[in-house]
Design a protein around this nucleic acid. Sequence first.
DNA 1: GAACTTGGTAAGTAGAGACTGACCGTCAGT
DNA 2: ACTGACGGTCAGTCTCTACTTACCAAGTTC
Lengths: 97, 97
Amino acid sequence: MLGDRTRRTIFERVAERAQTVGELAATLPVSRPAVSQHLKVLKDAGLVVDEPAGNRRIYRVDPEGLAAFRAQLDDFWTRTLAAYKQSAEQDDAGDAR
Amino acid sequence: MLGDRTRRTIFERVAERAQTVGELAATLPVSRPAVSQHLKVLKDAGLVVDEPAGNRRIYRVDPEGLAAFRAQLDDFWTRTLAAYKQSAEQDDAGDAR
DNA sequence: GAACTTGGTAAGTAGAGACTGACCGTCAGT
DNA sequence: ACTGACGGTCAGTCTCTACTTACCAAGTTC
């Protein structure tokens, strides 16, 4: 999801300040459609929401989706680290046997 | 890095229990070389270390590299969330103006 | 309402990377 | 020493995806 540099940058920019597609594209080394496509992905993932503002669309971070995303991440790390810890302890027990 | 399903699974498996390449490949839907390549990437990233054990190589999680990796992640999220928070507060101030 | 701006979508391309089969080196057991 | 198991690497393929150009729809401005 946020593995792609460009997409991560876009996400950071939007987090810093709600912006339109054009504003984002102007400061990035990719074309406007590319930005639009990245925003679509971020939107589908629930990380951003867009709001029509006359001629433009303003993109901003979606706090709920962001929280859900982080929760997923945290869950992964919690599970993985717990498993690792347990495995490490078993190794210690094995060494001490 | 951990965006790829297979690689993430491999990492989780290694975290659960230190294993050889063959053991990992046996329970995964990909070939042994594929596992070997994923492990190389994980090793280059410092997430795992390998230790020769006679004929085989045992892969285990590298606590230091893991900590560094998590630190990077945390840094990204801390920065991003801080920026977002500040941006949100400015918006509130703007609305109240 | 005509011209301009903004942005989403479609189609096609190019590059990245995940995967396989083949090959080779190394170690263990006989 | 020979044989078999384990695993790293190479070369090639195939899929995925990020990107661009072109086009179209909707809105604003004069």
